[in-house]
């Protein structure tokens, strides 16, 4: 029982990071209206921005999170200018191909600039473990896991408030729902889409450094695998709904970890993507209850 609970906790923690990735991904797809394949590299840039804060400033987590957000936000501007801005009315495959090209470029540039080797991210959060008695079984919860889960909840809540309570948030929602109508209402669609893309990238960057802290390392090639997980979680949430995308990420994390209970870690991705396929067979629109619902 304790073992299953601990695996469930691992899944929730990992799923929380996937949820943050998926939230950022959904914001991009929702506001910009196009799928991105450079998201993994955006996460990697965020992770390295924070890594250099750890190196030069010390293990200051809030500052590192700000740096991760800022680094990925800036990359978001570059990606938007190169891959989206001129191609809103062009066939979708053009911007899609551009994001693939940018992804390769960023990954290879990162290997040259940051080096190909894995960099350590050690002791950012104290290595404390709390033993909690749950129905007679011991649940070992790490301080790091608590920090990650709380951070993801806070960030998701902040983003929800931003979307619902601020002028820019409402503009983003409007652009997400109908670009033409937004334009007619006097919203600067391109600038708003740029902002949405950058916010989505910023969240990806924070997810990147959370992965780095959780796995104690960052590397130039770390983004590729997680890019697909973010995409899968986002698809589960109907691609553009941040609440359901977050739920998708959480489910993937839990399914992966519970799957390992019965088999080997080698099959981790099989569980994640089999779950995705199963859900899509029965609910092609994903978890989202209303077709076309957006951020």
């Amino acid at each position: 029982m304790g073992y299953i609970l601990n695996q469930l906790l691992n899944g929730i923690c990992q799923g929380s990071i996937y949820a943050l990735m998926a939230i950022g991904y959904s914001v991009i797809v929702g506001v910009v209206g196009m799928v991105t394949f450079a998201y993994g590299e955006v996460m990697m840039i965020g992770a390295f921005s924070a890594y250099y804060i750890f190196i030069y400033v010390g293990n200051n987590l809030p500052l590192a999170i700000l740096a991760a957000f800022a680094g990925s936000f800036i990359i978001g501007i570059v990606i938007y200018k190169l891959c989206y801005e001129r191609f809103f009315t062009a066939p979708r495959h053009i911007s899609l191909l551009c994001t693939i090209g940018i992804s390769m470029l960023l990954k290879n540039l990162a290997q040259i600039v940051f080096g190909p080797e894995t960099k350590p991210v050690l002791n950012v959060v104290s290595n404390k473990t709390f033993n909690i008695n749950v129905f007679g079984s011991t649940l070992n919860i790490r301080l790091l896991q608590i920090v990650i889960i709380v951070l993801v909840i806070v960030l998701a809540a902040a983003l929800t408030l931003f979307f619902n309570r601020t002028k820019y948030g409402i503009m983003l929602r409007a652009v997400s729902q109908n670009k033409d109508a937004s334009y007619l209402m006097g919203i600067n669609v391109k600038r708003t889409a740029l902002l949405g893309n950058c916010i989505g990238c910023g969240f990806g960057g924070i997810a990147g450094i959370l992965l780095g802290i959780y796995y104690f390392s960052v590397s130039a090639t770390m983004g590729s695998a997680y890019s697909m997980k973010a995409f899968a979680a986002s698809v589960l949430g109907g691609l553009v709904d941040i609440r359901f995308s977050a739920l998708g990420g959480l489910c993937i994390g839990i399914i992966e970890n519970l799957g390992i209970v019965f088999t080997a870690a080698t099959f981790r991705d099989i569980f994640a993507f089999a779950f995705l396929i199963l859900v899509l067979i029965f609910r092609p629109q994903g978890f989202v209850s209303k077709k076309g619902a957006r951020v």
Binding site: Y3, N10, Q14, S217, A264
Partner: peptide
């Protein structure tokens, strides 16, 4: 014995399983 695929980063669940 427990196995994992090349390139794996998350070993937390695997370690929990092994610790048990």
């Amino acid at each position: 014995v427990e196995t994992y695929a090349t390139g794996e980063k998350d070993f937390s669940s695997l370690i929990t399983k092994m610790q048990a």
